[in-house]
Simulated scan of single mutants.
Amino acid sequence: MPVFDHLGVSVDDVPSAIAQFDPVFTALGFTRYDADGSVSWHTEGETEFILLPAREPGSGPHRHGRVGWQHLAFAVDSRADVDRLHAVAVDAGWTVVRDPKLYPRFNERYYASFVEDGNGIRIEFMHNPPRESTES
């Protein structure tokens, strides 16, 4: 059972946000569902991600580091997946915050990239494989 059932994120312009989020979620293997005024993506039995119109139009963008949303990290299977998803996001209009690279401050295996959409919503693509066992 997933820890989170769903995550709702408010945006200033749902159609513009769809144009940025849909290629990323499609590349991650999610299925899109359109609703009246909102949209969601999910995988079978997994957490759902929902975009909703802001209750206060024009109140964005979100500012990274302020109270509220920080970022959402997507764990992927390889460094190549980090690179591929980063390219998908950039092609969809996301702004690069940090290009794909190793983050030794986390550990010597942690490879990630960070991108931000027009609403200031930041996501991370990360690969952090388990440490290899030294047992024989």
Rank of each mutant, 00 (worst) to 15 (best):
V67N: 04
A80C: 00
L85P: 01
A27K: 10
G65V: 06
A54D: 14
D91L: 01
I50L: 14
P53T: 04
V88W: 07
D22T: 07
E46I: 00
A75L: 08
P15F: 06
F4I: 15
A89F: 07
E56Q: 10
G68N: 13
D13K: 03
V88C: 02
A19T: 12
F4C: 11
V82E: 09
F74M: 06
A19Y: 11
V90L: 14
A92L: 08
S78E: 07
A73T: 07
R84E: 00
L7R: 05
D36R: 07
S78L: 05
P23N: 12
T95E: 14
A87T: 12
A89Q: 09
G68H: 10
F30N: 04
V3C: 02
G58A: 10
E48I: 12
G93K: 04
Q70F: 14
R66M: 11
E48C: 13
H86Q: 01
G8T: 12
G37E: 08
L85M: 03
F21N: 02
R55S: 12
S40F: 07
V67I: 10
R79A: 10
S10L: 07
R63V: 14
G93F: 02
G45I: 06
G93H: 04
L28F: 07
P61S: 11
S10T: 13
F49C: 06
S78H: 05
W94C: 05
H64N: 08
A17W: 02
L7Q: 13
R79H: 10
L52V: 12
F30E: 04
G45D: 10
D77E: 11
G29I: 02
A89L: 10
S59V: 01
G93A: 04
T47Q: 13
G8I: 00
H42M: 12
F49L: 15
W41P: 02
T43E: 12
A27N: 09
F25C: 13
F30P: 02
P2K: 12
A35G: 11
W69L: 14
E56P: 00
D91H: 06
R84P: 00
V39F: 03
T26Q: 13
D36S: 09
P15N: 10
V3R: 12
H86D: 09
A89K: 04
S10A: 14
G65S: 14
D81Q: 15
L51G: 05
D83M: 02
V82K: 05
V82F: 09
F74D: 02
R79Q: 13
P2F: 08
S16E: 06
I50G: 00
V67D: 03
D91T: 12
Y33G: 05
A73N: 02
H6M: 13
S38P: 00
L85I: 03
D77R: 07
